[in-house]
């Protein structure tokens, strides 16, 4: 099932989609595949794979650490594509979140081609704004990939309209002014941002940055179409004494998040 179909199905059910993130190659390539498959099996609707990068300026300490571990383990761009292919092969939609330089280095069109071949639905680009994205706009059109740019509480109405006009698939609303990482409270700015996005587009709106459990997922799911959870899931693996314990903890949190988005109907 594609990501768009997942959003449509959830919308028909009156609930939000849960999106779970994991860096490819963390703790190993196979380990990350197992983790993402476990998340999907436990009820997460869609997977956001993060391509590990040496300088992840939008990420907080948890995802930074996981990316460092992946890179120290020798993960390559091709391994990320392999992970996407393996996870997408189980039937769950997989979108890739990546900083821009690795894509530019790979070759934007070549990467789009290989991502499409691996079954990825598109890219979330935290440090690529539409203003700089000419090559990606062309490549994503050529290979029929979704493109998710970020909008922020600080985006002006003009920029927000321009940004969502360049999105396809869904829009990523950053709920707080800050980097990734679980927080005790989700942002008060998020509902306002989501309604601003809705005024500008019919695309589904995913909200990320700060969600750590089912209760928060329910809260965010009450006003957003997608609840994006990263650091809290990564921490399950990062802090586990061994792989089995990590997977067990990951399944438990994934199930909690899946229940969370179903706890509120809209």
């Amino acid at each position: 099932m594609g990501l768009t179909e997942v959003f449509e199905k959830a919308r028909a059910e009156g609930r939000a989609v849960s999106v779970g993130c994991m860096p490819a190659g963390f703790p190993t390539v196979d380990g990350s595949i197992a983790a993402m498959v476990a998340m999907a099996e436990a009820g997460i609707d869609a997977i956001e794979v993060e391509l590990p990068y040496s300088d992840p300026v939008m990420d907080g300490p948890v995802i930074q650490r996981a990316s460092e571990i992946a890179l120290a383990g020798g993960v390559r761009t091709k391994d990320t594509l392999r992970a996407i292919e393996a996870v997408a092969g189980t039937g769950v939609p997989v979108v890739l979140m990546t900083y821009w330089n690795p894509i530019e280095r790979y070759g934007v069109d070549a990467f789009a081609r290989d991502l499409a071949a691996a079954g990825g639905t598109g890219l979330i680009t935290p440090d690529l704004i539409p203003d700089e994205a000419h090559e990606w706009l062309a490549a994503s059109d050529a290979h029929q990939l979704d493109r998710t740019f970020l909008v922020s509480p600080s985006s002006t109405d003009e920029r927000l309209a321009m940004t969502v006009a360049h999105c396809r698939g869904f829009v990523y609303a950053t709920a707080v002014m800050g980097v990734t990482g679980a927080r005790d409270q989700t942002s008060v700015a998020a509902p306002a941002l989501v309604s601003r996005v809705r005024a500008a587009t019919d695309l589904p709106v995913g909200v990320g940055l700060g969600v750590r459990d089912g209760a928060q997922a329910a809260e965010v799911g009450s006003f957003a179409d997608g609840v994006i959870v990263g650091s809290a899931l990564v921490r399950c693996v990062l802090e586990a004494p061994d792989e089995a314990a990590g997977l067990a903890s990951l399944r438990a949190l994934s199930a909690d998040l899946a229940r969370g988005v179903r706890a509120v109907t809209r």
Partner: peptide, 12 residues
Amino acid sequence: GGRFVPEALIAA
């Protein structure tokens, strides 16, 4: 040159 930064910084 250009701007390869998170959208959150564009306003600033």
